[in-house]
Each structure stands twice: as structure tokens, then as C-alpha cells.
Amino acid sequence: MKFSFETLTALTPEEIWVNYATVNNWFKWEDDLIAINLEGDFKQGVSGEMTLQGMPPLAFELVEVTENKSFCDETKIPDLGSLYLNHELIKTEQGTLVRHSVSCVSLDGVDNQEHLGFLTQVFEDVPQSIFALIKASTTK
């Protein structure tokens, strides 16, 4: 099960990427972020922990990182499955398409109403976070 949101900006992928690769910059575009740390460089296989408003600390792993193009992090949710947040920067003739996707892969591989409710709640802030990311990327 997957939700995604995308919008076009005149910014280059490089102008946006710095706000992905420097996790302290996530505070600029994630309104509900309370704390975040990464146990190494921003690259595949590195783990971290984030705390979102109203939630306990959540461990995550960068499962894919392609500089100036995309990254995906995985958070394992007990008794539910894995939550994947994918962030893509797609260069086009008109500018850069910024796409964020949230997907859930259940432990048993079967989607249900509980998964939909959880995914809907997680996705709720995604469109706003993309607009905040673009704004943060235009101000140095």
C-alpha cells in the first residue's frame, strides 16, 4: 500500500539535496520533528533515530541513497511491518519534480484497514512537508 505526493519547482536537485543529506535541516521541513540523529554519514545502511510529536522515538535505516536524486528510509513498526518513506528529486525540462512517497509492507504481506489507517495518518503531513522543503531550499 502506497501514497505519494509530488510537485514541480524551479530549484535544482542540488539546491534541495542539502536539506535531505544534512539531517539537522529536517527540522526546516518536518513540522512535527522533535529530535533526530544519524549514526554516521548520509548513506545507505546507516541507522538513526527520530522522535515525532506525540510519538516514542523511532529507529530508522537509510535503505537507499543516491546523491541529488533520492533516498529511502525504513522504519520497522512492531506488530505491523515496515514503513518506507521515499524521497525523489527528478530533473525535468521544467525544473525538478519533488516526490515523497509513503508505503507500508505488512508482516503477513496482506493489506488491511488497520494498515490503511496507519498509512493515512503518516501521509497526512507529506504535502505540507514538500512545500516547506522547497521554501527551506530557497532560503540559504
Rank of each mutant, 00 (worst) to 15 (best):
S129P: 09
T66V: 15
G109R: 09
L85M: 15
S103K: 12
L80F: 05
A35T: 15
L80V: 11
K43L: 03
D31I: 06
K2M: 07
M55Y: 06
N112A: 05
R99Q: 07
S47W: 00
T139W: 05
Q121A: 15
L107T: 13
E64F: 10
T66R: 09
L133V: 06
F42I: 05
M55R: 13
D32V: 13
M50Q: 06
C72G: 07
E30G: 02
N86P: 03
L85G: 14
L89T: 02
T92S: 13
A136C: 10
L52Y: 00
T51F: 00
P13A: 04
L11Y: 00
V65A: 02
L107S: 14
N24W: 07
I77W: 00
F123K: 09
G40V: 10
A10F: 03
V98W: 01
N68R: 10
S129F: 02
V46K: 00
V18D: 06
G48F: 00
Y20H: 07
A132D: 10
N37E: 12
P127R: 03
N86M: 12
W17C: 12
T96L: 06
L58I: 04
L11D: 01
I134P: 01
L97K: 08
V98C: 03
E124R: 05
P78M: 11
D41F: 04
V23T: 04
N86L: 12
E6I: 07
D41K: 14
E39H: 08
E30V: 06
T9H: 01
L119N: 10
A21F: 03
L116A: 15
N24R: 15
I16R: 02
E114L: 15
V110R: 08
I34E: 14
Q113S: 11
D108K: 04
M1E: 09
R99W: 03
T22H: 12
D111R: 07
E49G: 12
S101Y: 04
E6M: 07
I34C: 07
S129D: 03
L58S: 06
Q121V: 04
A10C: 06
T138L: 11
T75V: 10
G81L: 04
Y84R: 11
F3D: 10
F131A: 15
Q113R: 08
S82I: 02
Q128S: 14
T139H: 11
V126L: 08
Q128L: 14
F27R: 06
S137T: 02
L83W: 02
V105Y: 11
